[in-house]
Amino acid sequence: MIDLVQNTIDGVMIGSSYGLLALGFTLIFGVMRRLNLSYGPSIMIGGYVGTVLYVQYGAGPLAVAGTMILGAAIAGIYVERLCFAPMRMGAGIASMVSSFAIWMQLEQAAILVLPRHTYPFPPLTTGAPLEWGPFLLRLDHLIMLGCALGLTAAIQFALYRTRFGLALRAIIGNPVAAHLVGINVSVAVMLAFAAASAIGGVAGFLVLSVDQQVTPMFGMWATLKGLIAMMIGGLGSIPGAILGGLLLGVVEAHCQWYFGPQIRDLAAYIVLFVFLLVHPGGLLGRAPGSDIAAPRTP
C-alpha cells in the first residue's frame, strides 16, 4: 500500500514534466493544427547551450535555466520560420515532414559541436527529500509540479484575459477572419511558437536538472513524451495536456514498479493505443469535428 502511494506520488511528479512538455506541444498544435516534430530537438538545443554555460563558465542553475529557455525559444522561432511560416495555409504534411528534417539537422548540429554522448547538467537543489509520513517527496519534483500548475494557470490567463490571447484564439477559430479584423497573424503565430518552445525549455530544464546530464537523444525523448501526453490529454486542450502528462507519469511509475523498467516505455505506447482506440479525442478533447483541433475551414 505504501509502495502504491509512493509510486503514485513519483508518477505525478514525473508526470508533471510530461505535462509541461505537452503544454508547449498543444499550444503549437492548437494555433497551427500542425505537428511540430522539431519541438523536442529545439528544447535539446536549449539544453546544450545550458550545459556549455555550466561546464565552461560554471554558471548556476538559474542562469542555466534562463539561457536554456531563451535558447529553446530562439530554436523554436528558427523552426517556425523554416518549416511553418512558408506553408501556413495548407500542406500540413509538408510542414510536418520538414520539421522532421530540421529535427535531424538540430541533432546533428548538437553532435558536431559537442561530440561526447553525455554532458553534465547542474542540479536544481541538492537538499534531502522531504518526509511526509512514510512517504518521500523530492524538492526538485515539487518544483516541477509547481511549475506545471503555475504555467497552466498563466497560459489560461494569457489566452482568455489578454489582447494577445484574444488574437491567438481568433487565429485558432478562423485564420482568414483573423486577418480581416486586423490581426497580424504571422507575428502572432511566431510569438506563440516562441512561447511554446520556451515552456518546453522550462520542462526540459527541470528534467535535465533531475537527470543531471544531457544527451542528443533528449530531443527525441521530449518530442515523444510530449506528443503522447498531449494525445492522451486531448489535442489542443491546455488542462488536458497537464492531465495527460500526470496520467502518463502515474501509469509509467506503476508499470516500472511491477513489471520492470523495460516495460515502462512500452506502457506509454499501450496507454496511447488504448486511448486512440476507445476515446480518440483524449481526456479533455472535444468530440472529433467540434474540437478546436478539427480541420480548419478557411
Binding site: G173, N174, A177, A178
Partner: peptide, 16 residues
Amino acid sequence: VFPHMSVYENLLAGAY
C-alpha cells in the same frame, strides 16, 4: 465568425 468565442469577444476582436 470566430465559433469558439463569445459574441462579445467577436466584437472585441473586430476592434483589434
